[in-house]
Design a protein around this nucleic acid. Structure first.
Lengths: 151, 151
DNA sequence: TTCATTTATGTCGTGATACGATATAACTAT
DNA sequence: ATAGTTATATCGTATCACGACATAAATGAA
């Protein structure tokens, strides 16, 4: 591969990655605005979603929330503090392991979350095609580049 | 639809949405860590990506960057300030419209960006399947819910 | 048992950064 | 000419994620 075609190819990877990130950011913007309109901080929405949307068998602790949100433990503690103060969530002592704190979404939190959830489902039905197309396009443009570099 | 099946369906939407957001967050975490390892703030990486990855015909101004990053204009100004101070980017006066500032990635910025870009392309080849699957699953679970609500 | 280690949560000070409000300069159109 | 609009810039504020540290409970090894 000569320098010219390599440079052209690099730019097409940059472009497809930029477009993908733009699509992603658009979705996240929508989500943040929807949360704020519903009276939640975007991160509070994410916390409620991960707590209420956890699998039946999961132990929903602070550490679980931190892992699902990609946060350090202490950041999760603070997020739970703020959410509990607003009555969206409650801490429940775990009888089997007194170090742990189990999290449960309150009725109030559940109500807000359900409204946000259907709003998100609707919006994703609209945005998913362009999001997936952008992601596919990254893979299409990046594929050969990766192959070449692997040699 | 009775209350029981509706509640079950609600939970499956919650779960698929939670999983999708977790996959998304995982990718974003990877991206942030990669940027930091490369010596950039995550947002600086995004700025470089949008500037360098813009279509040939685009006028890459502060406003353009703000729109692509989902930021207010002033936040973009500050992000450009920080990036310019570190020599990643430069402001170029636009001769045809003296209000505008055109943005250009420096060689230094380009070098960092290219390393990050191939790292991202590789990682996306790994993560894309689960990301797309999670998104598909949201659409699958949310589809009927939306139909029902539309009536 | 006893005591070191690990795990889970909590506290506090700090730093980064996105924003609203406001300002200034340049372009546009009537 | 000038009113209105557009593009960038400045500044004070608030949020929030983090590192460092602290506490309490569980675990494991001697």
């Amino acid at each position: 591969m000569n320098a010219r075609s390599s440079s052209l190819q690099n730019h097409s990877v940059l472009r497809s990655l930029a477009d993908f990130r733009f699509e992603l950011r658009s979705f996240l913007c929508f989500s943040e605005q929807a949360a704020l309109r519903a009276g939640l901080q975007p991160q509070q929405h994410q916390l409620l979603l991960q707590v209420a949307g956890a699998p039946e068998n999961a132990t929903v602790t602070i550490a679980y929330a931190a892992a699902r949100l990609g946060l350090k433990h202490n950041s999760a503690v603070e997020l739970v503090d703020r959410s509990e103060r607003e009555g969206l969530l409650e801490r429940i002592a775990d009888a089997t392991d007194k170090r742990r704190i189990l999290l449960r979404v309150t009725r109030k939190g559940d109500n807000v979350l359900h409204r946000l959830t259907s709003e998100h489902a609707r919006e994703l039905n609209v945005m998913a095609p362009s999001l997936m197309a952008a992601l596919e396009h990254v893979r299409a443009t990046a594929h050969f580049t990766n192959d070449a570099e692997a040699r």
